[in-house]
Write a protein that binds this DNA or RNA. Structure first.
Lengths: 167, 167
DNA sequence: GACCGTCGTAACATTAGTTGTTACGACGCG
DNA sequence: CGCGTCGTAACAACTAATGTTACGACGGTC
C-alpha cells in the first residue's frame, strides 16, 4: 500500500475522534455487543428480517469486521443467528427480555476481573505463600456480586433506556 | 422506574465515563499493592521500622522499581509513607484495619470498569444516540456495587486470610 | 450455472497500557 | 564524605483491543 494512501486512511480515522475525545485503551466489547443487539432488535421490530454487519457498524461507527467478530461470539453463546448468501445478515436467536448483560458479558469477555501476580511470589515468604489463595477467595466473592448485578439487567432494559434518552 | 434516571443522577458525581480508560484484566496492580501493604505491616509487627522496595520486590517476585511506583501511588493516597537517606524505606501511614481494598483500588486504578465506544456512535441513529447515556447509567450502578464490595474488605482482613492459608 | 452480496476468518497494523529493566540524581543519616 | 535507598526518567518487551484489507465460502436470484 502506498504511503499516500496510508496517510489518507490515517487522517480519516483521526477525524472520527473529534469532540475532544482522546484514544481509549479500554475494553468496549460489552458496550459494542449491547449496541449491536439493541440495533438488531429495533431493526427487526421495524419489519426487517436481518441486519447486516455493515449497517450495525455504521451505527456504532466502527468496522464491519469488528461487528462480525463480536456477533460471532454472541452466536456461539446462542444469542444471535446468522444467514449467509444473498440477503444474508444477523437476527436475534432469543427475545431481548431473556438476554441479560451477564449473558453478553460471558459471551464476549474472558478471564477474571482482577489478575494475580504475573510470576509466582516467593513461596518461602509467609505473605508470598498465602497472598494468592487469599486474594483469589476475596476476588471470587466480589466477582460473584458483579455477575449478579449484570444478570439483573436485561437487554430489553437496555433498549428501553436507549429509547428513553431525550433528544 | 427507569434505571436511566436513577443512574444519570449518580453519574454526575462520577466523572470519566465516555472517555475514560476501562479495565484491563491482565492488570495485577491491585494484587501487588495489597501484597506490599501486607508485607510492610507484617514486617513492622516483627519490630522493624521500615521496609525497602527491594525486600518487598523479592517477596512479590518482581522488580523494586515496580514496587516503588505502586507505593508512590499509595503514598499520594495517604496510605503509606517513605523515608529517604540511609535507613530509608516504607512504612504504613494508617492502620491496616482502616485501609479498605477500595482505598487501594482508587489509589492504583483509574477509569471506569467498562468503556464506551472509542468513537462517537452515529448520532443520527436512535440507538447510536441513546446507547452511551443508557450504558453509562447502567455501568455506573454496577460500579457502585463493586465499590461497595471492595469497601467491605479491609487490609487487615486480607492479612488475616493470608496468614490463615495452611502450609 | 453464473452472478452477487454478505458472512467467516486470516493476517497484519495501530494504539495504548502494564510490566520489567537500567540508569542516575536526590536525599539524609552516620 | 560515603553510602544505601528513594524518585523518576527512559526505554524495551509483552499483551490486548481495535481497525483494516483481503479473499474464500455460501446461498439466494437471474
Amino acid at each position: 500500500m502506498s504511503q499516500l494512501l496510508l496517510l489518507r486512511l490515517r487522517s480519516r480515522n483521526m477525524a472520527g475522534y473529534g469532540r475532544g475525545e482522546g484514544f481509549v485503551s479500554a475494553n468496549s466489547r460489552l458496550t459494542i455487543a449491547a449496541h449491536a443487539l439493541a440495533w438488531i432488535s429495533l431493526y427487526q421490530r421495524q419489519g426487517h428480517e436481518v441486519a447486516t454487519s455493515e449497517q450495525i457498524a455504521a451505527s456504532a461507527n466502527t468496522n464491519p469486521v469488528v461487528i462480525r467478530r463480536l456477533l460471532g461470539e454472541l452466536r456461539k453463546a446462542g444469542l444471535v443467528e446468522s444467514r449467509r448468501g444473498v440477503g444474508a445478515g444477523w437476527s436475534l436467536a432469543r427475545e431481548l427480555e431473556s438476554i441479560t448483560l451477564l449473558d453478553v458479558y460471558d459471551a464476549v469477555e474472558s478471564g477474571p476481573l482482577f489478575a494475580m501476580h504475573r510470576t509466582t511470589p516467593d513461596q518461602g515468604c509467609v505473605v508470598g505463600y498465602g497472598i494468592r489463595p487469599a486474594m483469589q477467595g476475596i476476588y471470587g466473592g466480589i466477582e460473584e456480586t458483579l455477575r449478579a448485578e449484570l444478570a439483573r439487567v436485561t437487554m430489553e432494559d437496555v433498549l428501553r433506556d436507549v429509547l428513553a434518552v431525550p433528544r
